[in-house]
């Protein structure tokens, strides 16, 4: 089975090389989508043995994932894995992430920070926002309570599942939209524990005001309902 990793990247010039080298051991191919970065992200990534696509302008993480997923399908992927470019995902989790798909037990595998593996350096405020986000997903979007970490960007899916998951959110709301598609489409899904590593660098990069992000996600999901 051909496993292709999709790595959306925005202004990751300083981190992406190490991240890609760590991921290369686990994937047959990697598609990096530079989301219109103003730094040398694409240039640096091209030095590694990966496909690099570039958005002419910044369109958001969801848009980059969609571009990368389409590229992976075009490259003949059997399994597509979404991973972050900032090094927050632990590459050691990747075999466990892909395993249920390779064994035919699931179509989609989702990483979770809240299944026993303690995240390294997660701020308390982040934890609270993620918990609140989970309840928002349950109450507003009807995502099953079994999903413990709706905003986790680590996920793997079969090519068939990737074709069926029709998501349109360009920004951070894509995670909730993907979950809604997955849990309502009859696809077999499972969550596995994932180790997330927060460093000062990655936290600074992600922005300091995560609470406003939560409101923005809710707003985009609301507007998205009327934009089909």
């Amino acid at each position: 089975m051909k496993v292709i990793g999709v790595v959306p990247a925005f202004k990751e010039e300083t981190r992406i090389v190490n991240v890609l080298r760590a991921y290369l051991a686990y994937f047959d191919e990697i598609v990096v989508v530079d989301d219109g970065s103003s730094d040398r992200t694409a240039e640096v990534a091209r030095m590694e043995r990966v496909h690099v696509l570039r958005h002419a302008i910044n369109r958001g993480q969801g848009a980059s994932l969609r571009t990368g997923t389409l590229a992976a399908l075009k490259l003949g992927a059997d399994v597509i894995v979404h991973v972050d470019a900032d090094g927050q995902h632990d590459p050691k989790d990747l075999p466990n992430l892909i395993k249920p798909i390779l064994e035919g037990q699931a179509d989609v595998v989702l990483g979770s920070r809240f299944l026993g593996v303690e995240a390294t350096g997660m701020p308390l405020l982040r934890r609270c926002v993620l918990k609140a986000g989970r309840w928002f997903n349950i109450l507003a979007l009807g995502i099953p309570k079994k999903v413990t970490d709706p905003q986790n960007g680590l996920r793997a899916m079969t090519a068939e599942a990737a074709r069926r998951i029709d998501f349109h959110q360009d920004g951070k709301a894509h995670a909730s939209e993907i979950l809604r598609c997955v849990t309502r489409s009859g696809l077999r899904w499972v969550e596995i524990p994932a180790h997330i590593i927060y460093t000062q660098d990655s936290l600074n990069k992600a922005g300091t005001n995560r609470t406003s992000d939560a409101f923005r996600i809710a707003w985009h999901l609301f507007i998205g309902v009327f934009t089909k």
Partner: peptide, 11 residues
């Protein structure tokens, strides 16, 4: 549009 442009780059 942006995606189509990026995917052409791949092909």
């Amino acid at each position: 549009l942006v995606q189509n442009g990026a995917l052409k780059d791949l092909s």
